[in-house]
Simulated assay, not measured.
Amino acid sequence: MISSENAEHYIWGEKCDGWYLVNRQDMLIIHEKMPPGTQEKRHYHSVSRQFFFVLEGILTMELAGEMQEIGARQGIEIPPGAKHQARNSSDAAVEFIVISHPTTRGDRSDLTEG
């Protein structure tokens, strides 16, 4: 059994937490937690398709220039090549699951702001 209690933990971005639930070349599943006011770098994946599923809070996803708010028990699919950025614009932490197929390792291109 795997959970965020016993999974490998990492810190990313501006004090955000992540836990590897499945970490294989053909699939990556992570549980992430973003404190209020944090965001990741805008980027895209050439091959990997992702699905973000919110457990608690509200995740703001910029996807191809459009902002979408995803609430608890809602999800959004990010196709390969789609420029995107996850943000927590709310006053509370947001927790979500990200499923990537195949893994995003070596398949991320960060974009410059502006």
Rank of each mutant, 00 (worst) to 15 (best):
D110N: 05
R105D: 01
S109K: 13
W19M: 05
L21C: 13
I97Q: 15
M27N: 03
F53Y: 14
H45A: 03
N6R: 13
S46N: 10
R108Y: 01
V94K: 14
H45M: 04
G114M: 01
K41V: 02
C16P: 09
A72E: 02
P80Q: 00
Q25R: 07
V94M: 13
H45T: 03
R108M: 04
H31D: 15
A64F: 06
I11T: 11
H101Y: 08
R87E: 00
F52I: 11
R24F: 04
R105V: 02
N6S: 14
D17S: 15
S89Q: 03
P80E: 02
R49Q: 09
S4T: 13
F51A: 10
S46G: 08
G71Y: 09
S3V: 01
M34N: 12
P35Y: 08
Q25G: 05
G71Q: 14
R24V: 04
E62D: 05
R42K: 11
V98H: 11
A72W: 02
G106E: 05
V54E: 10
G57Y: 00
F53Q: 09
R24P: 03
V98Y: 07
W12M: 10
E113Y: 01
C16A: 14
S48M: 10
P80W: 02
S4F: 07
K15M: 06
P80D: 00
E69T: 05
A72Y: 02
E32F: 04
I29D: 00
R87Q: 03
P79C: 08
F52C: 07
E113F: 00
S100A: 15
D107V: 05
